[in-house]
Simulated assay, not measured.
Amino acid sequence: MSEIIAEVERDPHYRKATDAAHPEPEATVSDVICDALRRSAAILPITALVTYTAAGRTALRAARERPAAPILSLTPDLFTARRLALVWGTHAVHVREFGRLSEIVDNACAIVTREGFAKPGDTIAVTGGMPFGISGGTNLLRIAQVP
């Protein structure tokens, strides 16, 4: 099945068909952030999209957008990481809890490099919610360059 999916996604018409069937975002902050995440990956040379998520809803919403870049979902919840491993285009990584945005961005840069999704100098996009640790609060999008 993986080979069939990979072949379909390599088709030059696949991205156009996916974009044409794209659902409109709902009038919520998290939907707007995930829509902006997809649009950012289509406009900028972003190599990876990183979602910092507690329950996994941000990663699920980002995957629904079918962005051009892979999604790395960082979560402090092991159950959520296991569940997200089955989601389209998502690579789940179990991480410790972070308390500051700078920690999330720094760790996101390190993890995308370690996991082989980016190299130094590449651009990534990071989403999360402030205050951290509260489920359902996605309200930020940060574009960062991997040091």
Results as ranks from 00 to 15, higher is better:
residue 1 M to R: 04
residue 6 A to T: 14
residue 9 E to S: 01
residue 10 R to C: 04
residue 14 Y to S: 11
residue 14 Y to H: 01
residue 16 K to W: 10
residue 17 A to R: 06
residue 22 H to N: 09
residue 25 P to Y: 15
residue 26 E to I: 09
residue 26 E to Y: 13
residue 28 T to H: 00
residue 29 V to P: 01
residue 30 S to A: 08
residue 35 D to R: 11
residue 37 L to K: 05
residue 38 R to G: 06
residue 41 A to P: 07
residue 42 A to C: 09
residue 42 A to Q: 13
residue 45 P to D: 14
residue 48 A to T: 13
residue 49 L to H: 07
residue 54 A to M: 13
residue 58 T to Y: 03
residue 60 L to V: 14
residue 60 L to K: 13
residue 60 L to P: 04
residue 61 R to H: 14
residue 63 A to C: 14
residue 67 P to W: 12
residue 69 A to G: 10
residue 71 I to K: 01
residue 71 I to F: 05
residue 77 D to Q: 00
residue 79 F to Y: 04
residue 79 F to T: 04
residue 81 A to G: 10
residue 83 R to D: 10
residue 83 R to A: 12
residue 83 R to L: 05
residue 85 A to T: 04
residue 89 G to V: 07
residue 93 V to T: 11
residue 94 H to M: 08
residue 95 V to R: 10
residue 97 E to Q: 06
residue 98 F to M: 10
residue 101 L to A: 01
residue 101 L to C: 00
residue 102 S to Y: 00
residue 103 E to Y: 05
residue 104 I to D: 00
residue 111 I to S: 08
residue 113 T to D: 00
residue 115 E to T: 02
residue 115 E to Q: 11
residue 118 A to L: 09
residue 120 P to F: 08
residue 121 G to W: 02
residue 124 I to A: 05
residue 125 A to M: 10
residue 125 A to H: 01
residue 126 V to Y: 07
residue 129 G to E: 07
residue 129 G to H: 02
residue 131 P to D: 00
residue 133 G to V: 03
residue 133 G to D: 01
residue 134 I to W: 09
residue 140 L to Q: 13
residue 141 L to K: 05
